[in-house]
């Protein structure tokens, strides 16, 4: 980021006063920008370890206060998108495709998922807005409300971005689920289940799904990370006050403390996500034990 031309100084100063070189140097020293980048990073890290994310250079508000409410929005968006991409679209889509392998439902699911995969997230978002506002004359509310305040309004605001994001994430999950189910259906224990007289539906849901879901969970976990990337874009399209939008804003304003805090938060979040996936593994597959 240091390589990007322009700095927060020129932006701050342009608005305030003229370009007095002395004043500029003074501000640079005040923000620590006169020190080499590694020194800046070092002192930032030292502060972070003590729980101090610093203040925004631009607005002077503590970064933690900026980030807190926005984190909530992004988490909600990603969580909803994950639920939509895996539970609503991905896994059922994969199940349908596998059950009707090489017949028309399979083809439909595969073509649709390929399309969803090929379309960029921002375009999907714009199209959803377009379709809903122009054709159905319905548009999401303009200001974001916490789901704890007004759940209905919150959902109206969040559902379209979550769908836009979820569609993109669903495509690989559909394919993964389909292939995983088909592979499991060829296993010996499925033949055993058939030999006991179990129905196809029972075999699919009771015997195959839990085995097939294990690789899909990994994939969904990784998807979640990808969705956060998508969230940055989609928040901008739907003007949601999330971490992604904050990050974009901070980058364009060269607001280093905010940028660093956003990246750090997303990083920590991904680590927790991976841990959660590992724990879920042990639950799904008894052959994996935690602790030994």
């Amino acid at each position: 980021m240091s390589l990007i031309p322009g700095s927060v100084i020129s932006q701050l100063v342009d608005q305030a006063a003229g370009s007095d070189p002395e004043k500029l140097a003074e501000m640079e020293a005040f923000l620590g920008l006169d020190r080499p980048w590694y020194a800046q990073l070092g002192s930032w890290l030292a502060n972070v370890v003590q729980g101090d994310l610093g203040n925004s250079w631009r607005s002077r508000i503590p970064v933690a206060d900026l980030l807190g409410p926005r984190l909530m929005v992004t988490l909600q968006l990603s969580a909803m998108a994950t639920v939509i991409s895996s539970l609503v679209l991905g896994i059922p889509g994969g199940l349908i495709a596998a059950a009707y392998k090489s017949r028309w439902p399979d083809s439909v699911v595969r073509v649709v998922s390929l399309l969803a995969l090929s379309v960029p997230v921002f375009w999907m978002g714009s199209m959803l807005i377009l379709v809903f506002s122009v054709w159905f004359n319905w548009s999401p509310p303009l200001t974001w409300v916490s789901p704890f305040e007004d759940f209905g309004a919150n959902m109206r605001m969040m559902i379209l971005p979550a769908i836009a994001l979820g569609l993109a994430g669903a495509a690989p999950l559909v394919r993964m689920t389909r292939n995983s189910i088909l592979e499991v259906m060829g296993q010996n224990y499925i033949r055993t289940a058939r030999s006991t007289g179990a129905t196809e539906g029972r075999i699919r849901f009771r015997h195959a799904l839990r085995n097939a879901i294990i690789p899909v969970v990994t994939s969904a976990g990784l998807q979640f990370g990808f969705l956060i990337g998508g969230a940055v874009v989609i928040e901008e399209v739907f003007s949601l006050p999330g971490v992604g939008r904050l990050l974009l804003q901070a980058i364009s304003q060269r607001d280093f403390p905010v940028v660093q805090a956003c990246v750090l938060t997303i990083g920590i979040f991904l680590i927790f996500l991976n841990i959660a996936v590992d724990i879920l593994y042990a639950y799904l597959d008894p052959r994996i034990k935690l602790g030994d």
Binding site: Q187, N188, Y189, R191, T192, A193, H207, R210, N211, L284, D285, P286, R287
Partner: peptide, 8 residues
């Protein structure tokens, strides 16, 4: 080894 369901 493979004829019983591993997750049940």
């Amino acid at each position: 080894m493979t004829s019983l369901n591993p997750v049940k």
